[in-house]
């Protein structure tokens, strides 16, 4: 899967490129709107004809910063759509005003992520836009005897069903997706709540306490581990 990233800020661009790269995407990074448009429209410039219904010169998706030198993101988007290129476009914007988002969506963007973004969020949106074939079932996440079905949202341990509230499920899913890696409280909160609590509000700790009762109580091995001062990790 090939993704064209158009972002003028090198650090942000590199970060997106590396992150998507690690997630298994092939990424090309360009720094301005002109170049991006040329690439997306195909080298001959006859992008509309050559790319067929949905294509954009061999790219499967575009990640587009709205503020670019030479040609603004909105103009890139408009030109692209005028040429009949149906490539899915994910917009990066520093503007969180609804107006701006609505404008971007009207211009033919498929989705947007507001800066500064958690990489997780960008990845989730890229995956959603990637139109992966439906045939591939949503994955089941497994750690030892603990199984989380992201399709049916069912959780079992050693075959026994565990009832979780939505927030408990969200936290567990996030930890299991990144099993073996320490996830900080802030990252977990962002994923499960998308809300900035006051610093010092250890809501994640409460959820973890509850999850432990339901998952690790009287069971071995313990799967949820605390990393002091940072967060939590799920590992066998």
């Amino acid at each position: 899967m090939k993704i064209l990233v158009i972002e003028d800020d090198r650090t942000v661009g590199e970060y997106v490129r590396r992150g998507l790269d690690e997630a298994g995407y092939h990424v090309d990074l360009v720094g301005d709107g002109d170049e991006g448009l040329r690439r997306a429209s195909g080298k001959g410039g006859g992008g509309g004809g050559g790319a067929g219904g949905g294509g954009g010169a061999g790219y499967d998706m575009m990640v587009l910063d709205l503020r670019l030198p030479k040609l603004s993101g909105i103009e890139v988007l408009r030109t692209l759509r005028d040429r009949g290129v149906g490539l899915p476009v994910l917009v990066l914007t520093a503007q969180d005003s609804v107006d701006f988002k609505v404008q971007a969506l009207r211009m033919g963007a498929d989705d947007y992520v507001t800066k500064p973004f958690a990489f997780e969020e960008l990845l989730a949106r890229v995956e959603a836009l990637g139109r992966r074939p439906k045939a591939i079932a949503p994955p089941k996440l497994k750690v030892n005897g603990l199984v989380l079905d992201t399709g049916s949202r069912e959780v079992t341990r050693d075959g026994k069903r565990i009832e979780l509230t939505p927030k408990e499920y969200a936290v567990l899913e996030y930890l299991m997706r990144h099993q073996g890696r320490v996830m900080s409280r802030t990252l977990i909160t962002e994923y499960a709540w998308d809300y900035h609590f006051d610093p010092g509000t250890n809501i994640v700790d409460v959820v973890i306490t509850r999850l432990r009762k339901k998952i690790d109580h009287a069971k071995e091995p313990k799967l949820i581990h605390t990393v002091r001062g940072v967060g939590y990790v799920v590992r066998a």
Binding site: T11, V12, Y15, P116
Partner: peptide, 10 residues
């Protein structure tokens, strides 16, 4: 926000 994005990314 751009610098914040950079800090955050790192």
């Amino acid at each position: 926000k751009t610098p914040l994005t950079v800090v955050r990314a790192g």
